[in-house]
Computed example of a mutant assay.
Amino acid sequence: MTHGMRSDTHTPHFGSGGDWRDTAVRYALLPLRIFLGVTFIYAGLDKLTDSAFMKDAGSGSIGDMMRAVRDSSAIPALVDLSLKNPVGFGYTIAFGELVVGIGTLLGLFARLAALGGALISLSLWLTVSWASDPYYYGNDLAYLMAWIPLVLAGAPLLSVDASLRSRRRQRAGGYR
């Protein structure tokens, strides 16, 4: 036995004082993973189903939003790149958010999904929310920071990645 976890089943054991802490540590990133996964799925679907957003121009369009932030962004060249094809950029962000959200929620290629989420958040922070004053009013920086623990740790529990890892270990053990 190791720190309150039965070694044969890996289920929580709350019998002694420190055991609940060990269990809490093991599951600490799960709420963050669920929040970011659901949020990014929602953000992607919201963009894809908003008829005003996926347009080059007009109220609420991706094109108008990017033109509005161009001069206040940290990297105007990045905004200029998006303005070459605002609708294509909008679809790229929306589908990227969907893929990242699904991968994060399922724990499938979790580190790669988290890296994608971090890169989306970084690009949005450097463009759309860069001029937020004070800086903490812009949520993209907070999302960027939230992705970092998942980039580092992945999804070690309740995930497709964990299931695949377990299956590989079982196979490797069976061939000895």
Rank of each mutant, 00 (worst) to 15 (best):
M1C: 10
M1W: 15
H3Y: 14
G4E: 04
M5G: 06
R6M: 06
S7D: 11
D8Q: 12
T9G: 08
H10S: 13
P12L: 07
H13Q: 15
H13C: 15
F14M: 12
S16W: 13
G17D: 11
G18K: 08
D19W: 12
T23N: 13
T23K: 11
R33N: 07
L36N: 00
L36E: 01
V38C: 10
F40A: 01
I41Q: 01
I41F: 04
I41P: 02
L48F: 04
T49W: 09
T49H: 14
D50W: 04
S51K: 11
S51T: 15
A52L: 09
M54Y: 04
M54R: 03
D56M: 09
A57K: 14
S59T: 14
I62A: 11
G63D: 06
M65W: 08
M66Q: 09
R67F: 06
S73N: 08
A74S: 13
V79H: 08
D80R: 11
S82K: 04
S82Q: 13
N85F: 05
N85T: 06
P86M: 00
V87S: 10
G88N: 06
F89G: 03
G90F: 06
Y91T: 02
Y91C: 02
Y91W: 14
Y91E: 03
T92D: 01
I93H: 03
A94P: 01
G96K: 00
E97V: 01
L98Q: 03
V99Y: 02
V100T: 11
G101D: 03
L105A: 05
G107Y: 09
G107S: 08
G107F: 10
A110D: 00
L112Y: 01
L112F: 05
A114D: 02
L119V: 10
L119W: 00
I120C: 02
I120Y: 03
L122N: 01
S123I: 03
S123M: 04
T127A: 06
V128G: 00
S129Y: 09
S129M: 11
Y135H: 06
G138C: 10
N139F: 08
N139W: 09
L141G: 07
L141S: 06
A142G: 12
Y143P: 03
A146Y: 07
W147M: 10
I148G: 05
L152A: 14
A155H: 04
V160P: 08
A162R: 11
S163M: 14
L164W: 15
L164A: 13
S166D: 12
S166V: 07
R167D: 10
R168K: 13
R168P: 04
R168Y: 09
R169Y: 11
R169Q: 15
Q170C: 10
Q170D: 15
R171H: 12
Y175K: 13
